[in-house]
Nucleic acid binder design. Structure first.
Length: 281
DNA sequence: GACAATGTTACAGT
DNA sequence: CACTGTAACATTGT
């Protein structure tokens, strides 16, 4: 599901619903044997200590960093949730794939649903959350006030030989962009997804910067993208998928002013890219 | 049955 | 060592 606008939509929903609530109990049915998940609630041993730490704690604040949700608790601990491909958080709401539930003292609950079970929930010290291995190597937030086109150019140029789409999706370069928004941004600015960063002009970096902010902001306004299975904490779909120009528009006529092209699909570095056959160069 | 699916990361290869 | 591309994680929908 979730790239920056979807995670932001979820975080804003949580800020309206769970602040001040006290966690009374946590439940999960996850039982992984994958050693890479040793520090997540999917590991039963980790879960029992996690449960002890969060029980009877109050929700102080909720924030977003890249595609991660950070839930800060009254005991200076932070619950980090990464929804990966198919995860979502639901408030007082259930669906078929709920694998973790936080029960609050007012009898409401927060459910983590995750069809493919790729998601990650772990506990960190609030003070060092942003220096933890999960967040320390992530690039700047594209919607941060201090983010400028110059900064974006400087970040992207760290991968001169990389294909622009791949570099845009690299979380260490810039935070929060995935397959949907990289396709939409590049369609908007007319840059081919396979163009090498070193071949991109200054004016094009400026355009990429503007399109990035415009498209991400627009999607947040529409409540995120539910082309696949994203839903917000109330179980409702976002509407940005109704405004796609490239992503999963294969075979459609290009809707750029006066462009006679059509949208093609091609696998680039293992992910499907969608772009106009003519105006993206 | 075949194929594709929003993210991340370990690993193999150069 | 640094960088790059691929496979894997688990499951569903078309």
């Amino acid at each position: 599901m979730p790239e920056l606008p979807e995670v932001e939509t979820t975080v804003r929903g949580l800020q309206k619903t769970i602040l001040g609530l006290i966690i009374k109990d946590v439940w999960t049915d996850l039982k992984t044997k994958d050693s890479r998940k040793h520090d997540t609630v999917a590991n039963p041993k980790y879960f029992s200590s996690f449960k002890k730490e969060v029980t009877n704690k109050k929700i102080k604040s909720v924030e977003r960093r890249a595609k991660n949700i950070l839930i800060n608790l009254s005991n200076s601990k932070t619950i980090l949730v990464h929804m990966k491909m198919t995860g979502h958080l639901l408030f007082n709401n259930k669906d078929k794939f709920v694998h973790v539930v936080f029960n609050f003292s007012n009898r409401k609950y927060l459910a983590f649903s995750d069809m493919r079970k790729f998601g990650k929930i772990t506990l960190l010290n609030t003070k060092t959350t942003h220096d933890s291995k999960h967040l320390k190597d992530i690039g700047p937030e594209p919607l941060d006030k201090t983010f400028t086109y110059k900064k974006l150019e400087e970040r992207l140029r760290k991968k001169p030989n990389g294909k622009i789409k791949t570099v845009l999706m690299n979380q260490a370069i810039v935070a929060g962009i995935g397959n949907i928004y990289s396709d939409e941004i590049l369609w908007q600015v007319g840059v081919h997804p396979e163009r090498r960063v070193s071949k991109i002009k200054k004016t094009e970096f400026q355009k990429i910067f503007k399109a990035m902010q415009k498209i991400l902001t627009k999607s947040i306004k529409f409540g995120g993208d539910s082309m696949s299975d994203y839903i917000n904490i109330y179980g409702k779909k976002g509407k940005f998928q109704l405004h796609h120009q490239a992503y999963r528009q294969t075979g459609e006529k290009c809707r750029k002013n006066g462009c006679k092209g059509f949208i093609k699909r091609k696998i680039i570095n293992g992910r499907s890219a969608h772009f106009c056959s003519i105006h993206q160069k």
